[in-house]
Write a protein that binds this DNA or RNA. Structure first.
Lengths: 120, 120, 120, 120
DNA sequence: GTGGTCTAGACCACC
DNA sequence: GTGGTCTAGACCACA
């Protein structure tokens, strides 16, 4: 995994998003065990507390749950994951549209160019 | 302007992209003067040399030109800017598609969801 | 190699030219490996960054290419080299004519004297 | 005047050559007074002693002469100047041929390319 | 050990 | 005050 951060958003949110991405894309399938916080933190070169916070958020969203003595696991509830996946996608889309608007593209132009690009 | 950087790409390339974004979106219209290197560098909190490198690249791409003692200016050639704008957009689109694919969306699903999201 | 610089032109351009000269004259044949940046820099007694800049320009001109972890190599494309060789020669010629003009020789006189000198 | 030096030749010889160039090209016509050593040295940003040496050489070659109390003058002997001009030219030519050879051009190729370049 | 990037700080030419 | 160049020195990714 390639951990990358932007300087203008809280790191824990970005961590959350990137871990979420791994969950919905199946890197960590439903029910699987997540690596220990310390390992993840080391890999991402962030403070374990920061990563802790990211995981707590995921827990709050019912995407991971904690088994006191054995670690953290991805939820077995496929629906939750599907829902998260969709939210993540919508978020990406909104961000994308905003970025295109920043360049000077209207939504219609964006869709048109997107379809044209895909065909090539 | 909000200068933000990702940790996994050279800063000078990101600077180049963000300045380009301001040019194509009309923040710096064709023929207008760019702020002095040192000012931009201070604003983005990077070393002047790094920003210099970014601007040199833009100059190589004929998007800005230099008047040695008076400063840097956006090219008056609207076509160059339009071309750059399109390239930037296509780049964004490809990146977007890749990101959606990373979540698990095919191109068709992406377009469908995009259109649906836009309607709402 | 004898590294020599003039005081009135950027060193990195002179480095570029001198390395180019070695490429077109076969000191570094097509496909051969160039010495590491640091070695070349030490040899020419310039800062590695300055030499880096010179090599980047040669790379932009497609005369050398980089293999990130193993080093820089001269392009295998003989045509690029031939083209560069010709450009270098024309440059030399123009400079020569200009110098002769500075002494007070017209182009015709220059050619005449050149042919005469060669015969002797 | 633009004073420029190469790092691999004695500066006094380069000074000599550049002053000579000004004499043969008429910047300092026969019989005219040269600026004081100190002024020339300041202009070229070299030590007055170095410039002194250059002028002594020119004097030895009978191209300038010294009037003890009033300064240095260019010789009135037009023939000396013509001779020096020719020598300078031949020197340039030899240097030029050597440089072209360094790139990989034979004398014949050099002349051919020179004539072709001139026509364009 | 390789190239690549970045910072800090200096000096230069030009107007 | 403007851009341009250069140095010194550091750190990084990659293999």
């Amino acid at each position: 995994m390639n951990w990358s951060f932007e300087t203008d958003r809280p790191i824990y949110l970005q961590l959350k998003e990137q871990i979420l991405r791994m969950i919905v894309s199946g890197v960590y399938p439903p029910g699987s065990k997540l690596p220990p916080v310390r390992d993840l933190a080391a890999e991402a070169s962030v403070n374990p507390n920061t990563l802790q916070k990211a995981l707590s958020e995921l827990e709050r969203d019912s995407l991971v749950y904690t088994q006191r003595t054995s670690g953290r696991y991805v939820t077995e509830d496929g629906n939750m994951i599907i829902k998260a996946k969709k939210e993540l996608a919508v978020e990406q889309i909104e961000l994308f549209i905003k970025k295109m608007a920043g360049i000077g593209y209207t939504v219609e132009e964006t869709i048109a160019l997107l379809e044209k690009t895909v065909k090539e």
